[in-house]
């Protein structure tokens, strides 16, 4: 089984639209939406949930005001400024600032502090018209999206092995921080979906640096390539110098948006279009060398 994560650095370059297109071309593949902050793949794949699991999020401290003597020791020691005096008296924890480190709980001289896991996060195993899909729903403002990404990936891998799948295809998050790191550690390949804008390029360069740190083979796709053909050329040249294989270029076309509006992948929505052809070519470039090995 080959695990592939689709990433972009900059958001909105078309990761999910292209993942959905690959999904309608892939055979014997498991899919995972690991952009747990803002998941959208389910809007196209329309999963039917078969299994729901709770993910225990970060702990959040809670102060028992009956026991608390307002000594303020915890306020002094908390490095996240998460504990405050209430205007009506007593202390309280701001759940959005608490990192769940349990320091206050351990040092309170009166044992007035306890902590509980947030139970706001869930992950699912579902059926879709293209195969099994794993996805998650995170509570607003949660602390641990990186860990949730890791959990979804781990279970997706298990499913893929169980089904003897050829591929596990992950739709990743934007950025290069903890969620992006959690989405690429140990994967076999990364596909970078980028767009020819200064910000798209700048962000792609940062993502490439991250992927290279982990020594993962990288493919690139330039989406909306005709928005700026000069930057497209610069990107192509840059990919060559970095030894990154360009899978292909996709021109801007409102059909990509219209496909999403119709809850379809571009392959389903306009099967004979130029874009569909290009994406088919790309998917073949990814899968053919692997099939040959078999």
């Amino acid at each position: 089984m080959i695990e592939i994560t689709i990433l972009s650095g900059k958001g909105g370059t078309g990761k999910t639209g292209i993942t959905a297109a690959f999904a309608s071309l892939a055979n014997n593949t498991v899919f995972a939406d690991i952009d747990v902050d803002a998941p959208d793949l389910h809007l196209i794949l329309e999963p039917e949930i078969k299994e729901e699991n709770q993910f225990l999020g970060a702990r959040i401290a809670k102060i028992d005001t009956q026991i608390c003597t307002n000594c303020g020791f915890c306020i002094k020691e908390c490095r996240f400024d998460a504990i405050h005096y209430r205007t009506e008296g007593g202390l309280e924890v701001n759940p959005f600032e608490c990192e769940g480190c349990r320091l206050c709980e351990r040092i309170c001289p009166f044992k007035a502090i306890s902590s509980e896991h947030s139970t706001n996060n869930h992950w699912f195993v579902s059926d879709t018209r293209f195969g099994t899909m794993l996805h998650a729903k995170m509570g607003p403002g949660e602390e641990n999206s990186g860990k949730l990404v890791t959990t979804v990936r781990k279970n997706a891998k298990e499913k893929a092995r169980e089904q003897n799948a050829d591929f596990l295809l992950n739709d990743g998050p934007p950025g290069v921080g903890c969620s992006a790191i959690a989405s690429l550690t140990g994967v076999d390949k990364v596909i970078l979906v980028t767009e020819p804008s200064k910000s798209g390029f700048h962000d792609a360069v940062r993502l490439i640096e991250l992927v290279q740190k982990f020594e993962i083979p990288l493919y690139a796709v330039i989406n909306k390539c005709d928005i700026n053909s000069e930057i497209t050329k610069q990107m192509e040249y840059f990919f060559i110098t970095q030894g990154i294989q360009l899978l292909g270029k996709i021109p801007f076309n409102e059909d990509m948006v219209n496909a999403i509006v119709n809850r379809k992948s571009i392959i389903e929505y306009k099967p004979d279009s130029e874009i569909a052809e290009k994406i088919k070519e790309m998917w073949n470039k990814v899968t053919e060398p692997i099939k040959e090995l078999k």
């Binding site: 902050d37 607003p140 403002g141 999206s145 934007p174």
Partner: peptide, 10 residues
């Protein structure tokens, strides 16, 4: 702000 709905946004 960064994209998303988790701790960096908060």
């Amino acid at each position: 702000a960064p994209p998303g709905t988790s701790c960096p946004v908060v």
